[in-house]
């Protein structure tokens, strides 16, 4: 049972808009805050599109969607967030930006309001340190796309109270998600294991040990994974991989997290993956070549 009634989401980009869908769909009054009105407008349009599909696929009725969308509002005025029992932040992955945001929220929100961070690579304790209420800050790492993926990695910071963590955990469940508890460690569980594995696969290509398609086939056939590491990297984008891997390396200094030189060369060449038509594979429309 969650005592939370109103969920705030700060940041209406890729993750924030997905998290807002999760909260609103579960029946919570949801307020999305962003500094950028165009971003809020884009998110609203995508959200309406998402729910229209849910109606088309008969997962929800039009009446249900009307209620959900009625519960979901947006604002560029941070003072509105005073109504929230929890604010989940999904703004840029930058400690300074997150500190500035949380300090402002601390000034407008009641002292009980929980702050959660969707950070992928920053420390929850460090984020909490700039919040003015570090015992009420929790890590809540949703997976992309948040509106479809159930998993949420939840981490207490060093000073997070048990009561705050439990309240966020209960909310996560009430939103229909599956929470797992991890320490406040760089990359939590997912990225901590995924990034070095992907780097090793890239190093294998770099060293000419096997072609990308051979490596992906080995992984899929031998281990039953749905996707090989190089296909996955093309989907995620090598620029995104570089950002996450560099942050993880900065936080761990573990050699496997260090980005192979090939990644920077590929980025310089415009080979970012699917979105530029070429990464480890070549793409044309939805078709993949070299697989």
């Amino acid at each position: 049972m969650s005592t939370i009634k109103t969920v705030g989401v700060a940041g209406s980009g890729t993750m924030g808009s997905g998290i807002a869908i999760v909260a609103a769909r579960a029946g919570f009054r949801t307020i999305v805050y962003d500094v950028s009105q165009p971003s809020l407008d884009r998110a609203r349009k995508q959200t309406e599109g998402f729910f229209a599909k849910s109606v088309e696929r008969k997962k929800l009725t039009q009446a249900q969607v009307d209620t959900i969308l009625g519960n979901l509002s947006s604002t560029t005025d941070i003072a509105t967030m005073a109504q929230c029992d929890i604010v989940i932040e999904a703004v840029f992955e930058n400690l300074k930006v997150k500190h500035e945001l949380l300090a402002k929220l601390d000034a407008v929100c009641p002292p009980e309001t929980l702050f959660a961070s969707n950070t992928s690579t920053l420390s929850i304790t460090e984020i909490a340190a700039g919040s003015g209420r570090d015992e009420r800050v929790i890590g809540m790492h949703f997976c992309l796309p948040a509106q479809l993926m159930k998993l949420v990695e939840m981490s207490p910071g060093l000073r997070t109270s048990d009561e705050a963590f439990q309240a966020a955990w209960d909310l996560c469940k009430a939103m229909g998600q599956i929470p797992v508890k991890t320490k406040d460690n760089p990359g939590f569980i997912l990225n901590y294991f995924l990034i070095p594995f992907n780097n090793d696969a890239i190093r294998m290509v770099e060293a000419g040990l096997a072609e990308p398609a051979e490596i992906d086939r080995a992984i899929k056939t031998g281990l039953g994974y749905a996707m090989g590491p190089l296909e996955l990297l093309d989907l995620v984008g090598l620029d995104t991989h570089l950002l996450v891997a560099e942050a993880l390396y900065a936080g761990t200094h573990e050699p496997r997290n260090q980005v192979p030189a090939l990644v920077k060369r590929m980025i310089a060449a415009g080979h970012l993956g699917r979105k530029t038509g070429q990464g480890f594979y070549k793409y044309s429309g939805n078709a993949m070549f070299g697989g």
Partner: peptide
């Protein structure tokens, strides 16, 4: 939790 994270998060 480690096992379920890698299964749900990465589809392993």
């Amino acid at each position: 939790d480690m096992d379920i994270t890698l299964k749900l998060g990465l589809g392993y």
